[in-house]
Design a protein around this nucleic acid. Structure first.
Lengths: 228, 228
DNA sequence: GCAAATATAATAGTATTACTATCACATACT
DNA sequence: AGTATGTGATAGTAATACTATTATATTTGC
C-alpha cells in the first residue's frame, strides 16, 4: 500500500494555482510552510510576505504560484478533501455490506487524522486542524457561486455525494440522505472545534469520539420503516 | 404580546461596544445599516468607511461605538442569539410535555425567520442571513479562547445548553445531548447555506424544511433503549 | 560547455484598510 | 451663558494585498 500511495498524486483544480506547487522545490516549500504558518497564526494574520520571510524566499515568488491567499486556501482544502476521499474510497471499496460500508465511511471522516508519510511536504494533522478552523471561510464568501461554478468545491461535493449514496444503499426510503451526509461531514469539523474551544457544547472528548456520536446519529436515522 | 415585546431590550455583552448603540439615533443607524451593508457586500468587504458614507456620517464616529468590525459582528450575532433565545423561551416555557417542548424548540431554531416589528431598526431576516453566512467567522479566530473567557459567546452557549437540557428531559440515557444540540443549531445554519449555494448537498428546499430534517434526526436519536 | 530560456529574488510602488489623533462645530443641559 | 458631550472633518500611520520591473541564479537544450 505504501508503494501504491507513493505514486499517487492528489489532483486539485488547476485554477487554484498559477503554477503547480508540486512541480518545484520552492512550490513544495510554499505548501509545506503555509500549512505550518496558517496553523500557527491563523488565516487572517497569514500573509505571503510573512510566508516569504519564513521560507527565506520572496513575496513576489509566492505570487507566481498562487494568485492570493484565498486561492492558496482553496488549494490546501481541495488537497485535503482529495486526500480524505482517497482514504474513503480505499477503505470502503471492497466492502459489500451497505451498513458496514457506511459504518467505515463515518469512521474515516470522523476519526482523528494521523500523519501520512506518503506526502512528505504535507503535515496532514496540521492540515486537518486548518480545515477545522478555516475551511468554512473558503466558501462563506460573496464569490461562492462563481467559484462553485468554476469547480473549486468539486472534491468536497463528491465526498458528500459518495456518503449520501452509501446512506441510500442502507435505506432507500430515508428522505434526507444529502442533508445527513453534509451534516456528518460539516458536523464532524464542528465537534472537533468544540472539543478544543467550547467543551461544554459537546460530549466528544478524549474518551468519547465524534465517530461514536455520528455513528449513533446516522444509524438511528435509518430504516425507521415509517410506513410500517 | 406586542406590548410586552416593546419594552424588551435584548441584552448583549457590554464589551462588544464602546458606547451602547441603542442609546442614540446614530447608534441605531449604525446597527441598522451595518446589517444592510454586510448583507449586501459581505463581511470581508465591509468597512467602517463604507458604512460612514452610507449613513452620511463619519468613519471616526462609528469607531466611537465599536472598536472594530469584528466587535460589531460580535454585537450583531449576540443580539441575534439573544432575540432567538427570547423566542425559544417564550414558545417553550409553558409546555409541560418534554417531547412537545423539544419539538417546538427545534421548530423555533430551524424555521425561516420572519420580520419582528418590535425592533424597528433591526431587520431580523437579513440578520439571520448574516448569521448563516458570517457567524462562524466570529469564533473561527485565534482570539476565540480569550473572547470566550470574556463572555462574548454566552448567549449562544446558553442556547445550546437549553436545548441540551430539553433533550435530556426527553431521554435521560442519551449519551450526546450537548453534541446533538450544537449539531442542530450549527447544522440548521449550514443547511440553509447549502439550499442557497449548494442545493445538491441538501434535501432541504422550498418544500422540505430543515425543521422536518432535524426533527427526524433528533427524535430518532432519542429513546433507543440501548439496554433493552 | 555555452547560450537561451526559465525560475527566483530584490526592490519599488500603489491603492486600500484599519485604525489613531486632533480640532472644529453643533446641540443639550444646568 | 457656559460647559459638557456628541458628531463630523481632516490628516496621518503602519500594514496589507497586491503589480511591475529589473537583476541574478539555475536549468535545459544543443
Amino acid at each position: 500500500m505504501k508503494h501504491l500511495l507513493q505514486t499517487i498524486k492528489i489532483e486539485v483544480n488547476k485554477k487554484t494555482y498559477l503554477k503547480d506547487p508540486e512541480s518545484s522545490a520552492l512550490g513544495k516549500r510554499i505548501v509545506e510552510h503555509s500549512i505550518l504558518l496558517i496553523h500557527e497564526i491563523g488565516f487572517e494574520a497569514f500573509t505571503f510576505k510573512k510566508l516569504g520571510d519564513r521560507i527565506s524566499s520572496n513575496e513576489s515568488s509566492i505570487y507566481r504560484y498562487f494568485e492570493n491567499k484565498h486561492k492558496l486556501l482553496l488549494y490546501l482544502t481541495s488537497w485535503y478533501w482529495g486526500w480524505l476521499e482517497y482514504q474513503l474510497v480505499f477503505a470502503t471499496n471492497s466492502i459489500a455490506d451497505p451498513s458496514e460500508k457506511l459504518r467505515i465511511a463515518i469512521e474515516i471522516i470522523s476519526k482523528p487524522v494521523v500523519l501520512d508519510t506518503s506526502f512528505s511536504h504535507i503535515n496532514e494533522v496540521l492540515l486537518n486542524n486548518i480545515i477545522i478552523n478555516e475551511y468554512s471561510k473558503s466558501y462563506l464568501t460573496k464569490e461562492v457561486d462563481t467559484e462553485n461554478k468554476e469547480g473549486y468545491f468539486e472534491i468536497y461535493k463528491r465526498m458528500v455525494l459518495r456518503i449520501s449514496e452509501m446512506i441510500i444503499e442502507v435505506d432507500q426510503e430515508y428522505p434526507f440522505p444529502s442533508s445527513l451526509a453534509s451534516t456528518a461531514l460539516d458536523g464532524t469539523l464542528h465537534q472537533y472545534f468544540l472539543t478544543q474551544h467550547f467543551p461544554s457544547l459537546t460530549n466528544c472528548n478524549k474518551e468519547v469520539t465524534p465517530t461514536e456520536y455520528f455513528s449513533h446519529l446516522v444509524f438511528n436515522s435509518l430504516n425507521k420503516n415509517t410506513n410500517g
